[in-house]
Design a protein around this nucleic acid. Structure first.
Lengths: 334, 334
DNA sequence: GTGAAAGCGCTAACAT
DNA sequence: ATGTTAGCGCTTTCAC
């Protein structure tokens, strides 16, 4: 494999000059530059980023730490959409992405900062980790620039991107209230997600503004799982015949809720209205098509990469990006 | 950041000994090893893989070149599933994945082998590239170990994993024939995919075995797109009232076909039977639920990573892995 | 404008 | 069992 040494030899100059020419420095005569360029093309030269990174102490690599590459993530596509967004932005830069594959076994062996330091990544994007994940604590303590997705932590070196989950949930419930619903249940995700806490706030806020009492027993924990949501809703509706609407903190859980309602031989939206959250692909293919709060997952990824790289380039200190959500009315509400 | 030099100093030994101890060589006394381990823990040492890779001329990194991170790929999830499989296998090894983000702009600037050599990846997995992709030619010519997904090319350094597409398609058509269908159309993908060619073979083979004539005008090009398939099928069925079944080379196109049939106010499966290919998530959520040929995309990724790493470790020379498909009967056929 | 030399952190002969 | 030395391919003072 060709090195700058080879080029230097053939071009009859020193490696220093080759390095300078290749990197576009100004203090190289036009003539030698031409020569060097020609030779490097001729020898089919590719720079060795490893050597370069080593000496520059910068790898132009950003790490991607994803906890959600499970079979379930195929259903909501959240992870993949975010990845696409990240990939898109990164493709516009010189950076490359390194995907850290961490199953839980590995996690016990290697700490977060070990992972990052070994590969000398310039920064990291974290997606899908729960609030009780051991990595999270480390992130804050380490000094590696990092952007979190959907976890609102800010410091000198960590920023985040998320959507306005309080407002998002509020939009959903407000819509149901507008349509005349008063007995509105909620299926929330598990407690280890900030978004769950936020969406609950939005739910409560909407009710409060209308002076409608909050029933704690109407708020279920669906753990972000289709089946669990189905069980919970089945149980709830058997006990509470007067509920007319359910707000679910994810579309997947909304789909579970729909199954439960189907089992009870109740009609959507005639007897029960359902609003989901996320706007996953399935939402628009369900029968009836699901009304939901859409969040732009692709954009979240794109903005996360943008934020991180801006932080790395120094054009921005740790910061946050909060995206909007949008109510998408379909057929599961009336 | 701590280096082995620091450790050497504190432990009172040479860097060589530190290196040997850390890498588990046998020719280090148990006592010094203990000492070195203790010191490196104390100093919170992480090895610098960049330096290591540079000197060893091996990066324990495998490149992932994906061409299918488009919005469309969200629908069929093929790319993501393959990625999950790759990630899973890689997680069981020491390797890490580097995701090459190549939009078409970049592709013009940087050749395949440049991409790989710059980052010094040990091998590459390619997914989603078409047979007319400029990269493909390069792959074969370059000497970088590589595994292709769904492109049957073998050489000293390139292997591939795919499914048995001829047999898969044949299973679909055989099933339709068994159920008494005789006028069976096919919606194929575009010509730049090997799988299309294979699936067409399977279709023809099944017909031939039953002595049923092949009508070229019944084989449509749906370009693997939902909308295009819909257009094509609409057109076909308007012209040919006697067709009773359609085999589609992808579920997405099958869904397009279903839309067309719905528009014609025809019933599935009463008047027209549909068989898809892939078994994507949507298939089981459609109404009626789609009969299809399932291929294990996750496993394809897993096997691809496995094959590549075995090639790299020398335990296997370039080779292929061909997976089975499975007919999944649902409600779109009778 | 160009070159010599040092050094990034690590491994690997080759000594001892 | 341990140390000395060279070198991976590159960038970067510093001198000329």
């Amino acid at each position: 494999m060709t090195t700058i040494k080879d080029i230097a030899k053939v071009a009859g100059v020193s490696v220093t000059t080759v390095s300078r020419a290749l990197n576009g420095y100004s203090d190289v005569s036009e003539k030698t530059r031409q020569k060097i360029m020609a030779v490097s093309k001729e020898l089919n030269y590719s720079p060795n980023t490893l050597a370069r990174s080593l000496v520059m102490n910068k790898s132009t690599t950003i790490g991607l730490l994803v906890s959600g590459m499970t079979a379930d993530s195929v259903k909501d596509n959240f992870t993949f959409e975010v990845l696409r967004g990240i990939d898109q932005f990164v493709a516009e830069t010189n950076y490359d992405l390194i995907l850290f594959s961490t199953n839980s076994t590995k996690q016990r062996e290697k700490t977060y900062s070990q992972l990052c330091r070994e590969r000398r990544v310039d920064g990291v994007i974290l997606q899908g980790i729960k609030t009780d994940d051991p990595y999270l604590q480390e992130v804050v303590e380490s000094d590696i620039p990092c952007v979190l997705i959907d976890i609102p932590i800010e410091s000198q070196t960590v920023g985040y991107v998320t959507t306005d989950n309080v407002l998002g949930a509020k939009k959903a419930v407000d819509y149901l209230l507008e349509r005349g619903h008063r007995k509105i249940a909620m299926v929330n995700g598990h407690d280890f997600a900030f978004v769950s806490q936020e969406r609950l706030k939005g739910y409560m806020q909407a009710l409060q503004e209308k002076g409608i009492p909050y029933h704690q027993e109407w708020v279920l924990n669906g753990a972000f799982e289709e089946e669990e949501a189905e069980r919970q809703v089945l149980h709830l509706l058997q006990k509470n015949k007067d509920i007319t609407a359910i707000f679910c903190a994810s579309d997947l859980m909304a789909i579970g809720a729909m199954q439960a309602i189907k089992k009870l031989n109740m009609d959507i939206p005639e007897q029960i209205s359902i609003v989901g959250y996320d706007d996953i692909l399935l939402a628009s293919y369900m029968n009836p098509r699901l009304t939901t709060i859409a969040q732009d997952k692709y954009k979240m990824g794109y903005e996360a990469a943008k934020l991180l790289i801006e932080m790395l380039e120094g054009s921005r200190q740790s910061c946050k990006t909060v995206l909007e959500t949008k109510l998408v009315v379909r057929e599961s509400t009336n």
